[in-house]
Amino acid sequence: MIRHLPAAIVLAISLTACSDTPSESKLEQLLQQQFDSQYDALINIEQLKKINGWQESEYQYVAEVSYTIKFQTSFKAYMDEQTAKPGNPLEKMAKGISAGMLKLQYGDFKAGDEYQVKQQTLSLRNAENGWLLQQ
């Protein structure tokens, strides 16, 4: 004999399924992956806090976050390391330009320097394998 679940239980289960929003640790992980892919472990993301968040659609979520970035090496050491690597000169030039933009934003940073990002808006997409940070 199959019993029907009370409506309150069904509603609670469906609301729980709909409230699958990325946690602070997931947001920090996604942001760290983005920085790592762009800057080869130059920056660590620390102390991320979600300020606000909202569901744009079933598959899109927006989060406002603050966090600290910590440079793992100096600008000069990073640039020396990038230019010493074997590989495509155009890729090296793109990495150099990208790091140069960081220098414009944060100055001549040194290893261990920390900067507070007071607010940044992240757009995420819920895919088959979980949340992805949109560029």
Score class of each variant (00 low, 15 high):
2 I>Q: 14
3 R>E: 13
3 R>N: 14
4 H>P: 05
5 L>H: 08
6 P>Y: 09
7 A>E: 14
7 A>P: 08
11 L>F: 14
12 A>Y: 13
13 I>W: 09
13 I>S: 03
14 S>T: 13
15 L>Q: 14
16 T>Y: 15
18 C>R: 12
20 D>V: 09
20 D>G: 07
22 P>E: 02
24 E>Q: 14
24 E>Y: 07
24 E>R: 09
25 S>E: 13
26 K>M: 06
28 E>H: 05
34 Q>K: 12
34 Q>W: 09
36 D>S: 07
36 D>Q: 08
39 Y>A: 01
41 A>I: 04
42 L>V: 02
43 I>C: 07
50 K>H: 03
53 G>I: 02
57 S>P: 12
58 E>T: 04
59 Y>N: 09
66 S>G: 12
68 T>G: 00
71 F>V: 00
73 T>H: 12
74 S>C: 09
80 D>V: 07
81 E>A: 06
82 Q>R: 07
84 A>N: 09
84 A>M: 07
85 K>H: 06
85 K>T: 03
85 K>V: 03
87 G>Y: 06
88 N>L: 13
92 K>L: 08
92 K>E: 06
94 A>Q: 15
95 K>P: 00
96 G>W: 04
96 G>S: 09
99 A>R: 03
100 G>A: 06
100 G>Q: 08
102 L>S: 02
103 K>G: 07
103 K>R: 15
104 L>N: 10
106 Y>S: 02
107 G>C: 11
112 G>R: 02
112 G>T: 02
114 E>W: 07
115 Y>S: 03
119 Q>W: 04
121 T>V: 10
122 L>S: 00
123 S>W: 08
123 S>Y: 10
124 L>A: 03
125 R>T: 01
126 N>G: 00
130 G>N: 10
132 L>T: 04
135 Q>T: 11
